[in-house]
């Protein structure tokens, strides 16, 4: 018997292959339709422009791997940026600013994870109140847009490594590092495998002796950390904090994961897929902005359509995966 896996085309790779194909096709469509689309510059901008979404989505993907959800991430992004803005305005040393900013989301994630585990509370509602808390905290810091004056952020926003006519910016680098770390954790560490196990079947994982509760708490902490890091990166673009920023980002992050082949029920998916899912959303945005006449809202319609087709594809894939002996 020639196993399909040996041909490198296992059913299990089907969603990610489909996602990659869609990405390439979309990219080609862009390339054939618009001049200057197939350049390094456009590609690297894709990474730069979607770094915040991508970094957030990595954390979200880990949460979804366990079968959970984190609705707090968008407000954590916005409030982290606000914390940076307010603290720099107060003249706090930058290192301390960075630590506080990153700790904010990480601690919030830790607390949410603890409540979800300890009270066996629905993640949906717990992270929703996390969302309220973070957003509310941001509003309290300031209702207006607060500019960031520190040199560090000015420099960070213009930093980049030239590659051809493109520029590998700091956000893009951080995105790639987070993705690489995510892939590493998911594939090479016990923690990563426990995360998948938890999403596969919590009861089984428990019976197999895996640290279910600890893993759950870690996952929400990781998501909070990623959201905070994304919020920090966000300041490089805006050089300000604003309470209403990043509204709806949590749904985009979920979309990244789902388009990337992650199953909402948990247990299946890849971090690499999430990167592609993010980039697909990015390409759609880029194409629409190149087009000029199509308005921004077409992005949502396209992304919704993408979601529908990927979910139906997964549905067929799951239903069609016959048992073998």
């Amino acid at each position: 018997m020639i196993s399909a896996a040996k041909l490198g085309f296992s059913r299990r790779n089907l969603p990610i292959i489909a996602t990659m194909t869609v990405f390439v096709v979309l990219y080609m469509i862009g390339g054939m339709t618009f001049r200057g689309f197939l350049t390094n510059r456009v590609f690297f901008n894709l990474l730069t422009d979607n770094a915040v979404l991508g970094i957030t989505a990595v954390g979200m993907t880990f949460v979804i791997f366990t079968g959970g959800i984190d609705l707090s991430v968008a407000s954590v992004v916005s409030t982290t940026a606000m914390i940076v803005a307010v603290m720099t305005q107060a003249g706090v040393p930058n290192l301390f600013v960075i630590i506080c900013a990153i700790l904010f989301g990480t601690l919030l994630g830790l607390v949410m994870g603890f409540i979800i585990h300890y009270f066996d509370a629905p993640a949906f509602i717990v992270t929703l109140s996390g969302q309220f808390f973070a957003r509310g905290f941001g509003y309290i810091l300031s209702l207006d847009s607060v500019p960031i004056q520190y040199d560090f952020y000015q420099k960070a926003s213009s930093f980049g490594i030239r590659i051809g006519n493109g520029k590998l910016t700091l956000p893009a680098i951080i995105l790639l590092v987070v993705i690489a770390l995510g892939i590493f954790i998911s594939k090479k560490t016990k923690l990563g495998r426990n995360i998948y196990a938890l999403g596969g079947n919590e009861q089984s994982a428990l019976l197999m002796g895996l640290p279910v509760g600890k893993t759950k708490i870690i996952v929400y902490t990781m998501s909070g950390f990623c959201a905070s890091l994304a919020g920090f990166v966000y300041t490089f673009y805006t050089l300000s904090g604003y309470g209403l920023a990043a509204i709806g980002l949590e749904m985009d992050a979920i979309a990244s994961a789902v388009i990337g082949g992650t199953l909402m029920t948990g247990g299946y998916g890849t971090i690499f897929g999430t990167l592609i899912g993010t980039l697909i959303q990015g390409v759609i945005k880029t194409i629409i902005s190149f087009h000029g006449e199509l308005s921004a809202y077409w992005i949502k319609i396209f992304v919704g359509g993408m979601l529908l087709s990927f979910i139906l594809l997964q549905r067929v894939f799951v239903a069609g995966s016959g048992k073998r002996d």
Binding site: A197, G200, N201, Q203, L210, G267
Partner: peptide, 29 residues
């Protein structure tokens, strides 16, 4: 137990090993 308490979403090898997986010197799986 009567109902198979394993993880369908992981590979056969992983189901045999999870919780006590072999690691390299670097600590990675």
């Amino acid at each position: 137990f009567q109902e198979v308490n394993l993880l369908n979403n992981l590979s056969v090898a992983e189901n045999l090993a999870i919780g006590r997986q072999p690691t390299k010197k670097t600590g990675t799986l």
